[in-house]
Design a protein around this nucleic acid. Structure first.
Lengths: 257, 257
DNA sequence: CGTCGCTAACGTGTTAACAATATGGTCCCT
DNA sequence: AGGGACCATATTGTTAACACGTTAGCGACG
């Protein structure tokens, strides 16, 4: 994605922190000012962890304060998040975590079926030994996480499984697009999940997909993937509720994973 | 909350222009400062028209000067263009018009085959009378433009044809993604076209797709679309050359279409 | 003669002050 | 007592100055 990484971490970093109020900066760790990418990831993971629910207002100064960075940085992060449809930014109003509509959710899953069917087809046709091995290991790891009750970790691994699949397909453009779709999925699920049951990718279905790929059975793999996504979509319903949950500083300070 | 609002638009706009140096602003027109979207569109069309070739440096101050806006606006536009992979922005270096690699070009066409096959399938299955009619009219218009020798206009209509198809499919997410792919395609073609022949969508192929849709023959429509894209891809080769073409102010000032 | 190091200009990245707008409370009027 | 307009505050949007890094030209040295 964006090529933004190495900048004035050393001297400028500490100077920046000292300015942005040592109190807020100190709350999330020593004197490290998170980079743009880190902030992006933090907010994204907050959505994954249900700490940020759809409709939550993301005020620039509050975020800047929470992360100990400048408002401009927050602004860029919010722009990126808005590109990915994770937040909606309204002119002259605070940005909010996006609240995907029912239609958008349906379209999202339909798009994933199209893209991921093509991806597993590619992978099933040109599957290397190592690739299949890595996929099996991935599915196993995921299963373990769920078995141990580490839901958050399991969810992340589930997403990573789909990403790994896209990587193996060898089409960078498609992989990049799927990345966007995957990023939006948890938000859609969160916004429209039917019950409190943490709807995640079932590991059995992932395993089934891997086995079809290992057999080189492209048709079976595509069918399994389509069914998998349809089953995921089936866990949703049409109720949409929003909640407010401020105090971003505390929220992000806690999870120093 | 209804009273104090009717003033800001006019005043702010003119104030902005007056600051940004009347000389530069005057070069591309009277006192209108283009919006962010307009600048985005202008640059995008410049790529379409081969006025901006891959590798051309896009300096922030030069662009800001050419359009008569602030550097911050240019910066946001460049970020958006970079998100769409039309420009590459390198840290602490001038942004350049992207030079798609061979692999990227191949992946792009493969992705388009996947997405557009799914799209025409949807359209063929649920095609309304009006939709087919609009498509036919579109193809006709396109053909006329090419017949009249209006290559630029024909190219734009070709792109619009694919966009219209995506719109008719009714999947907003997929349409949005295809939009990105379509936007990148001219750049890829420009970067790797085999000869000087302006490779554009053949209108005959478009017409064939429309007729398959009109018949409700999803399979034929998908085949036609896939073949169409493959034929387009076939017009490319693997030579990559870059040229420099500065003086952005004059370039954008000329085309006050 | 080629190559390395230095210096100055250029261009991007960052920051903080300023301007404009929405929001929420309060007061007045009906 | 209820509703609407006004004022104060909070928050976003814009602007210009500054700091940093890169690039290119030039001179010295091997």
């Amino acid at each position: 994605m964006s090529v933004r990484k190495s900048k004035a971490n050393g001297a400028a970093g500490s100077a920046r922190v000292s300015r942005a109020s040592g109190a807020a900066a100190a709350r999330h760790g020593p004197a490290n000012a998170p980079s743009e990418d880190e902030i992006f990831a933090r907010i994204y993971e907050a959505v994954l962890d249900h700490r940020l629910q759809p409709g939550t207002k993301l005020k620039e100064v509050a975020l800047a304060d929470a992360f100990g960075v400048n408002r401009a940085v927050v602004r860029k992060v919010l722009a990126r998040l808005s590109y990915n449809r994770l937040v909606a930014l309204r002119p002259n109003r605070a940005a909010v975590v996006a609240s995907p509509t029912i239609d958008e959710s349906r379209d999202l899953f339909a798009a994933r079926r199209v893209v991921e069917a093509a991806i597993v087809e590619c992978v099933a046709r040109a599957a290397s030994r190592e690739g299949v091995k890595a996929l099996r290991a991935h599915a196993r790891q995921e299963q373990d996480a769920y078995a141990r009750g580490e839901t958050r970790r399991g969810l992340k691994l589930s997403l990573a499984f789909h990403r790994e699949l896209a990587r193996l397909a060898g089409n960078g453009v498609l992989a990049e697009f799927l990345d966007q779709l995957i990023a939006r999925t948890p938000l859609v699920v969160l916004a429209h999940k039917s019950t409190s049951g943490d709807s995640a990718c079932s590991d059995d279905e992932h395993a089934g997909i891997v086995e079809a790929i290992a057999r080189g059975d492209a048709h079976a793999a595509m069918t399994a993937m389509t069914a998998h996504l349809t089953s995921l979509e089936g866990q949703l319903d049409l109720t949409g509720k929003t909640r407010a949950a401020p105090d971003l500083a505390a929220m992000f300070a806690v999870s120093e994973v």
